[in-house]
Amino acid sequence: MTDFLNWITLHQQIIYIVILMVFVGIEIIGRVPSVLHTPLMSGANAIHGVVIIGAIIVMGKAEADNYLALILGFLAVVLGTLNVVGGFVVTDRMLEMFKGKKKK
């Protein structure tokens, strides 16, 4: 029990962030019209591309002779970038078409 309380005290900042973000995430998309489900999914898909920051850190910390870290890190950066760039561009393409129609 004390271990558990210690752990919470030590990580309270992160725990607060997690809890609040769960509610924010639920709240902000609660009233989305079904028309936008696919673009929204695609947009969320692009946002979880933040994982690329982890890949950059891995890559940047890798020692010059640690080939495993270098190669896997490089792959991770490539894949993460694919997720981010592809995700945002695909979302934009979907939304571009909606937008154009509204103006007419």
């Binding site: 995430g25 999914m41 979880h48």
Partner: peptide, 25 residues
């Protein structure tokens, strides 16, 4: 998880946000 690992707030917020919103969706 990467956010926890590197104590990186932007990964944490982005990841959890998508995790929650994605589950609701």
């Amino acid at each position: 998880c990467g956010g926890f690992l590197y104590d990186n707030k932007v990964m944490l917020t982005g990841g959890i946000l998508v995790g929650a919103a994605g589950t609701l969706l």
